[in-house]
Amino acid sequence: MSMVNCISLNSTSRVVMASCRNAFTMVANLSLYAVALVVFSTTKSTTHSDIENQYHWIAYTSIFIGCCFVGVFHLGTKEPRLKIRVHGTSYARISWAYWFKKVLYYQVGLVYMLTRLAQNVSQAYLAFYVIEDMRMAKSAKALVPAIIYISSFIVSIIMQEMYWTGQRLKAYYCAGGVLWVFCGASILFLPQSLSAFMYVISVFIGIANALMTVTGVSMQSVLVGSDLNGCAFVYGSLSFLDKVSCGLAVFVLQSF
């Protein structure tokens, strides 16, 4: 994520790369479904240990594919420092304190944290909701997240074709936020008899997730600007904040 800023200083290009990254995150999520489908269709499960083995195979295969792509990334990515020299940016080290003095750092940090919180916590509870609350078919446990990923992928692709400014980032973030508010309210009051409506809601959840995530990550790019030597700290610290907050939110919810 922080390397995106080293590749280009252009704000539109940075948003395009953030949306491209989001689209491929969805591809990665969907590929796990393909792996699971292959494993479940090629192996038989009659006992508890057979099912355990199937899940072991899904885990090993996905880890192996992930490692292959890490290898491709490390071997195939050119050193971004070469491009920084073209832009004429200095190598002067930026202190951590520099970011703490910026109001925008706290604003972007909170926005990113809240966005990831909405996305991650909702994903964590999705399976329980469709099975335990809505009493939907077991296939819904896989189908609903898949619909979310597909709609999120499509929106991420569309977002690559647009021209981006700061105001547009704010507007599209708010559009995603409004969608999530309506989706959240629908989920909160959805009766069991209308459980099929969850498939429609999941389309809008996917759209809202893509809008908020891409613009939220792009706001970090705006914060970094041309201070490229500090971008790893910005992305690292905000991602840390997001992970801690998600853990705390699930802990608090589970305590009920």
């Binding site: 925008l104 604003q107 972007v108 909170l110 926005v111 809240l114 966005t115 919180l117 909405a118 996305q119 916590v121 909702s122 964590a124 509870y125 999705l126 329980f128 909701y129 335990e132 609350d133 700061g166 105001q167 980032l169 704010k170 973030y173 708010c174 995603g176 936020g177 409004v178 999530w180 508010v181 989706c183 959240g184 309210a185 629908s186 989920i187 909160l188 809202a208 908020m212 939220g216 706001m219 705006v222 939110a249 699930v250 919810l253 589970q254 009920f256």
Partner: peptide, 27 residues
């Protein structure tokens, strides 16, 4: 139930808070 709060209420509140902060930002 807790799943409804986790999937419905929390994301909605987070989105509202996010939008409010975005409004104060100077991008």
């Amino acid at each position: 139930s807790v799943t409804r709060y986790g999937l419905g209420l929390l994301p909605a509140v987070c989105s509202l808070a996010g939008m409010a902060i975005t409004y104060t930002m100077k991008l």
